[in-house]
Nucleic acid binder design. Structure first.
Lengths: 135, 135
DNA sequence: ATCAATGCAAAAACTTTGCACTGAT
DNA sequence: ATCAGTGCAAAGTTTTTGCATTGAT
């Protein structure tokens, strides 16, 4: 389970970290804001973990490469577990539903474009905004 | 000049709006945060236009389709004039330099992917982060 | 004259930080 | 015992809003 990952990240294995990682692993929606995580903590636990701690832990997890932070529209950053498989996102402007996708053609073109501009690509963010229409 | 566009947007032609549009049109860097615009106003003008007004006007311009708001990394939103030609961005993490690009292959793939998911595409955001290397 | 637009200050929303206490090793 | 981790409250940042005044038509 997650305890290992925390240790490998050079962080002490504490209750807040274990719980937050657990929540990220088990929550039905993969993408959660700090507030989302905090709310689950409030509901599930009798324990009291501060919102500030949630932010701190998520930031540490991000630094450690355990989670990825996204800045979608709407102020709040959202976090998701980094499963190692890069992907982009489709965000429904109506429901907030998020679907992940990966397209090698797009990835390839990005690398080419960067190269053409003498740009050393470190990362990228591709988000499609729109609306899921019932099939 | 810009006066027409403001009128067409259904907004009264006022000094703050004229000046802000003018700044967006003439500033050497196309992408400016509200603070950037505000700073130019402070320097150039004896007039005093409030930061709140800059935010209000930029938001109105966005609604009117005159400018586009981007949420790049780093907290502050940046605005650019909408010249009608859609493009994406390369952002240098070192210098902050921004280069625009457009790639029809990527655009096309996005449309296809959206279609495959029953997703009605309204908009998208593609940002490449990295570093420009001397040629 | 009318009603939108603005300045100012206050508030809101999100996130970070200082500090004294707690807890993992 | 030590030093990282945490809770709490306070502060920081960016953006928005309420309200009285100003200004465009």
């Amino acid at each position: 389970m997650g305890t290992e990952e925390i240790k490998l990240a050079g962080l002490k294995v504490t209750l807040p970290r274990t719980r937050i990682l657990q929540i990220l692993e088990t929550n039905k929606t993969r993408h959660m804001s700090a507030e989302d995580v905090y709310r689950v903590l409030l509901d599930d636990d009798a324990s009291s973990i501060a919102l500030a701690t949630v932010y701190r832990v998520l930031t540490q997890f991000e630094t450690a490469g355990l989670v990825i932070r996204h800045n979608f529209e709407g102020g709040q950053a959202v976090f998701e577990l980094d499963n190692g498989e890069h992907h982009d996102h489709m965000v429904c402007l109506k429901s907030g539903k998020i679907v992940e996708f990966h397209d090698e053609i797009i990835e390839q073109r990005q690398r080419e474009i960067a190269k053409e501009h003498g740009f050393e690509l470190a990362d990228h963010s591709l988000i499609l905004y729109g609306e899921f229409k019932g099939k």
